[in-house]
Design a protein around this nucleic acid. Structure first.
Length: 1034
RNA sequence: GGGCGAUUAGCUCAGUUGGCUAGAGCAAUUCGUUUACACCGAAUAGGUCACAGGUUCGAGUCCUGUAUCGCCCACCA
């Protein structure tokens, strides 16, 4: 048999074990396989960059769940894949090309505009990037031990997923749920694309409020001589004002409703309307808007989302005064510009703002100007302020009851908050998954509080703008044609050709016809007739929303789909509840009539040591491979699992490893952009003088380039020491076990000792607790429960207890074998590599069945497919063993404390006498071998009348007094006793107070009161004894 | 502006329907190689559970308010 080294070496084991799993094809599942279905779809990581610790956490948890399910004999399938991440990837590639001085998207766009194939060529670049990072991500996942079904690896933009997207879009379009809308979008004037709401980052900006006076007039434009003052932070948009609004409840100002103003500069006559959206000015108000407001709101429907809504309510014109680059322009919908407007046309929005303010000042129409700090949306890509921009976009009507309503109704009743919608409050959900045959249950969030986020989102949903002015994505499958007379008569041959404005019957000259194609068969026909495909692509979340179905072959009615959809649980971060969870739920319900998953587990966000979110843009992310390098994969996985409590954030102080010396150290931090604390790009070696290195922040931010003189430092964190120690301990405990076990046939001839019965009792409790914790996704509880059982119970107490006897006692060896076997099984989902390696050695040493009565442990060659331990209900519970062993533990602890207090060397054997009631002494005698071995003593005298010896330290355990002889140090003993006396005295006061309280005695549970009485009596007894001992010492 | 969460030992965190004499890991102190493990063992010290009120026989736990920090959402009057 191969000897195990005295220390666990993860590097040597991990690759070996990976190979073994691969050879045995352990992770692949087929619908026809035995067992109840269990499935997880991976939240597909973006191909923008390599995975960081947050992914490591997320994927470790999914792997734990998958591996447990597999061991439970379920037909477990974990579907891996990656996301094309539209704008993020396109932007990353563009930036990289620019940084390398190569042709970037600007040039490709030019090429495309000139009829070249710029689009295609640029997409090749992005695809190359995607291939590179997809490979890198996949390798990272494999290195992390993720037991994904790699044969099913998917990508949101590959062929099968494209088919799914086409089908979904087609069906939604046909049902009229996709529409073309002229709406305000978040426009990035630099990259010239629309942004989703979530792609907009709010930043506080120091701006101003300007108070501008507009002359009041009548409908014909004749001025009355009165003025109204509007307050705005964006004076330049006044060129597009089409109304002024006043709150009808604002008594002093409401009289203006129905009158008009003549818009300065432009000369446009626009109405004053009443709308209760307008904030009434109030200088005393806590609301800063009320303090700043003038009571009159300029309404610019084309450049402000609120104004757009007000405009709709009052039927105001929408006048767009800007070009796509956000410069003032008269060629995008502004046709009443007067000559006075000329100086403003062509100015950037910033210049226009200054110019407009100057104009008002010079015209003496600027009443006031106040500083004002407010949040302004910025493009997460170009970081310039986002411009609400009036343009044509495709929308998905998620507000339709078939989508948002269905998602709400799918929530589990137990997690719903009272809603405005009475039907929703009362409605019992339908069971989404008949296969499991469980009673009515809906979508459930863990931790529960996230259900609120989900509900709130769907109750306030707005339609989803799904078009993006990008190249990297699924092209919108819509072709359009603005008809001439002749074309209006055209008959389209496609299977379905109904279009939004005007069906074929009512088509007229000038109408635009939109045709959605399910596949490309009819494309050439259409294009011959002059149709052109929409240049936009779909929002990246459109394809992600289909992920739980598209990864299983949808729209085909595959066996995969029938087996694994709905999946068992979605495991993700909270930031994505609205973006992704919501949309998957809506799509799966809409297309398949069932949920995409039954549970949603939301895990914490990993922050760095300063409480800052780990992110790519901050450059404070940590590559899991670095941790695997410094601590080993199992150590990383264990620690991450143990850190997964129910909180929403967790901190991870990150250190660097000096490449010159290999030692870990805390880097120097500097304040980076945005006030964030980051590791200085360049760091000095803490031990090798004059040597420097590049921090991961330095490399990620591009501030330094690693080189031979400036090698990149890997990250590490001492947080992972926890897992590393556990791995080593497990390695050695198993090594020790193997040195004892021989490949004997298990025998039952010997009696099980107390220690055996106790450890099996503990094991039973541990398995039950582990199962309960997993069922509620309480990972930390799961991990620490196993840790405590293994380290505290098994190693500290059980192994130490059996050392003197195990070589002679076959029953003990059998118990030991069962415990190690079960421990390896229990820890395998969290620490797959080391347990699988040790399993091999245990199998060699003891190849047979290692079950014990009450605990089935069927043998298996590979641990990855071995059965999860199942306890026969109650069979191994042993209350008397638990009680007896607790007694032993307190005796041993008491003697150890005295030894330590008196500086007795651990190797020295002391003498102990005991005195007390006969029953207790008998109990002592029954367990003497264990106790003597654990506390290292020999027994001098035992008896109910044993006299207190001089020069001995005494301890009270229950009714029994123990004397540790010849430990000499009187002062130390006095100190120990007096400390004990103080503690007891304090406790007694406490107990007396409680028991003296009639209300407590009368209203607390009788059991609790009795417990307090017992505690009180015990403390009083011990105090008396302690005082006697102190008196004896003088 | 709305919502969610955090504040417990020097550090990172547990503490599930109120019963706590408040726990763990790391760090600290003392002792120790008894051949599984020094990535170890034994023992010790360390906390008016952010603050102020309230409910209760009893509050780390429930309620109200305050402070600080973090995250998400929000239509830049």
């Amino acid at each position: 048999m191969q000897e195990l080294s005295p220390q666990y070496d993860p590097q040597a084991v991990e690759s070996l074990i990976t190979e073994r799993w691969n050879d045995a094809q352990c992770f692949h599942a087929e619908p026809t396989d035995a067992g109840d279905p269990y499935s997880i779809v991976i939240p597909p990581p973006n191909v923008t960059a390599a995975l960081h610790l947050g992914h490591a956490l997320n994927n470790t948890l999914q792997d734990v769940l998958t591996r447990v399910a597999r061991m439970r004999g379920m037909n477990a399938c974990w579907l891996p894949g990656t996301d094309h991440a539209g704008i993020a990837t396109q932007s990353v590639v563009d930036k990289r090309l620019q940084a390398e001085g190569k042709k970037a998207i600007k040039e490709y766009k030019k090429m495309e505009a000139q009829g070249g194939n710029g689009r295609e060529q640029f997409l090749e670049k992005v695809t190359a990037w995607k291939d590179q990072y997809e490979a890198r991500i996949t390798q990272q996942l494999k290195d992390m031990g993720c037991s994904c079904d790699w044969e099913r690896q998917a990508f949101t933009m590959d062929e099968p997923r494209a088919t799914a997207v086409r089908e979904a879009f087609f069906r939604l379009f046909k049902e009229g749920l996709i529409y073309r809308g002229k709406r305000l979008v978040n426009w990035d004037p630099v990259t010239q694309t629309a942004l989703a709401d979530d792609e907009v980052e709010m930043e506080d900006v120091d701006g101003h409020f300007w108070y501008m006076k507009y002359p009041v007039c009548d409908a014909t434009g004749a001025e009355t001589g009165a003025f109204v003052t509007v307050a705005t932070t964006r004076p330049e948009t006044m060129l597009g004002d089409t109304g002024v609004a006043v709150n009808p409840n604002d008594a002093p100002r409401a009289k203006f409703i129905g009158q008009f103003v003549k818009l300065p500069i432009v000369g446009r006559v626009i109405p004053i309307v009443g709308d209760d959206y307008v904030v009434i000015p109030d200088e005393e108000s806590a609301d800063s808007k009320a303090r700043m407001a003038s009571g009159f709101l300029k309404v610019t429907p084309a450049h402000d989302v609120n104004d757009f809504e007000i405009g709709r309510r009052h039927d105001l014109a929408v006048i767009n005064i800007m070009a796509p680059d956000a410069s003032i322009s008269t060629s995008h919908g502004w046709d009443d510009a007067s000559q006075a407007c000329d100086p403003f046309v062509g100015l950037s929005r910033e210049d226009a703002r200054r110019a407009v303010v100057r104009w008002f000042k010079e015209a003496d129409l600027l009443e006031d100007q106040k500083p004002y700090k407010h949040a302004v949306g910025h493009s997460y890509r170009s970081h310039v302020p986002v411009e609400p921009y009036y343009s044509d976009q495709w929308y998905l009507k998620v507000t339709d009851d078939k989508l948002a309503g269905a998602a709400l109704r799918a929530m589990d009743v137990s997690q719903r908050q009272p809603s405005d919608n009475a039907a929703f409050n009362a409605k019992t959900p339908k069971r989404q998954d008949a296969k499991e045959g469980k009673a009515d249950t809906g979508l459930k969030f863990y931790p529960e509080r996230y259900a609120k986020t989900f509900q709130n989102w769907h109750e306030n949903l707005r339609d989803w703008c799904i078009s993006r002015q990008l190249w990297w994505g699924h092209r919108i499958p819509v072709w359009s044609l603005t008809c001439s007379d002749e074309q209006a008569a055209l008959t389209l041959t496609n299977e379905w050709n109904d279009a939004n404005p005007g069906s074929s019957a009512a088509r007229q000259d000038g109408d635009t016809v939109f045709v959605c194609l399910k596949n490309n068969d009819a494309v050439s026909d259409l294009e011959k007739q002059g149709f052109i495909q929409d240049p936009d692509v779909l929002d990246t979340w459109f394809s992600s929303a289909l992920w739980p179905m598209s990864t299983l072959g949808w729209p085909e009615k595959t066996d995969d789909l029938a087996t694994w959809n709905p999946s068992s649980v979605l495991c993700t971060a909270r930031e994505i509840i609205t973006l992704w969870v919501s949309r998957m739920v809506m799509f799966n319900l809409y297309f398949e009539g069932q949920l995409p998953f039954k549970d949603v587990f939301i895990h914490a966000m990993i922050q760095d040591g300063h409480g800052q979110k780990m992110s790519k843009s901050l450059g404070n992310g940590v590559d899991p491979i670095d941790i695997i390098h410094s601590h080993g994969c199992d150590a990383m996985r264990y620690t991450l699992t143990a850190m997964t409590t129910q909180t929403q954030d967790l901190r991870m102080p990150v250190d660097l490893i000096d490449p010159h010396s290999g030692e870990a150290f805390t880097p120097k931090f500097v304040t980076g952009p945005g006030g964030y604390k980051v590791a200085a790009p360049e760091q000095d070696s803490p031990s090798v003088k004059g040597k420097k290195m590049a921090s991961s922040y330095g490399v990620a931010s591009g501030k330094v380039k690693p080189s031979d003189d400036l090698p990149a430092a890997r990250n590490t964190s001492e947080k992972f020491d926890l897992g590393q120690r556990l791995a080593n301990k497990l390695w050695n405990a198993t090594r020790f076990t193997l040195s004892i076990l021989t490949d004997e046939t298990p025998t039952t001839s010997d009696e099980m000792t107390l220690a055996d019965r106790w450890i099996l009792d503990r094991l039973a409790e541990t398995v039950a607790a582990a199962d309960a914790a997993l069922g509620e996704y309480r990972f930390a509880e799961f991990a620490t429960g196993l840790y405590d059982f293994f380290w505290r119970d098994l190693c500290d107490w059980y192994l130490e207890s059996i050392k003197p006897t195990v070589r002679e006692n076959a029953a003990q060896r059998r118990t030991l074998a069962a415990c190690i076997d079960a421990t390896l099984r229990l820890l395998h989902p969290v620490m797959p590599f080391i347990t699988e390696r040790l399993w091999e050695s245990v199998n060699e040493a003891l190849p047979g069945d290692r079950s014990v009565p009450g605990l089935a442990l069927p043998p298996n060659t590979l641990l990855v497919k071995a059965a999860w331990p199942v306890m026969e209900a109650g069979a191994m519970a042993d209350a008397s063993a638990a009680e007896d062993f607790a007694f032993i533990q307190s005796v041993v602890s008491a003697i150890r404390e005295i030894r330590s207090q008196h500086q007795v060397a651990p190797s020295a054997v002391v003498e102990v006498s005991a005195t007390g009631p006969a029953a207790v002494l008998e109990r002592m005698a029954a367990h003497r071998p264990i106790v003597q071995s654990l506390a290292r003593y020999t027994t001098r005298e035992v008896g109910t009348d044993a006299q207190e010896a001089s020069n001995a330290a005494a301890a009270l355990v229950g009714d029994m007094t123990l004397y540790v002889h010849d430990v000499v140090d009187t002062e130390a003993e006095k100190a120990r006793l007096s400390k004990r006396r103080d503690t007891l005295a304090k406790q007694i006061v406490n107990f007396e107070k409680r028991l003296g309280n009639e209300k407590y005695v009368n209203s607390a549970p009788a059991k609790l009161v009795q417990e307090t009485r017992d505690q009180f009596a015990a403390a009083a007894r011990e105090l008396e004894a302690v005082e006697a001992q102190m008196a004896a010492l003088g």
